[in-house]
Amino acid sequence: MVVIAASFFHVRPLRGQGPLDQVRKTELENLVRQDCGSCHGMTMKGGLGRSLLPERLREADRDGLAAIILDGIPGTPMPPWRGLLTEAEAAWIAGRLQEGLAK
């Protein structure tokens, strides 16, 4: 069942509305580490994409970061995640990056 649920997560658009439950937060954390991590590194230290560590992002505007997640950065490989993530989810991810992901 776990496998089926995880598989479903990977192909469905992620459109849940309202507050994020713990299951969804765990999914998002996995997404950030594993899929954002393909360019930014699994530890967020950077790769082809820039570092997303707190020391770089802490002072940044959270809404601005969420907007980058949702709309990408044209002319660079940073893609828009709108359609896969809701605005609430993007804001939550931005906040988690600013705080630093748990080890």
């Binding site: 990408g72 490989p77 893609p79 828009p80 995640w81």
Partner: peptide, 13 residues
């Protein structure tokens, strides 16, 4: 090869 069409978002290189 993209014929000037907008490319899809690339979530993995």
């Amino acid at each position: 090869y993209g014929k000037g069409e907008e490319k899809l978002p690339v979530y993995k290189m």
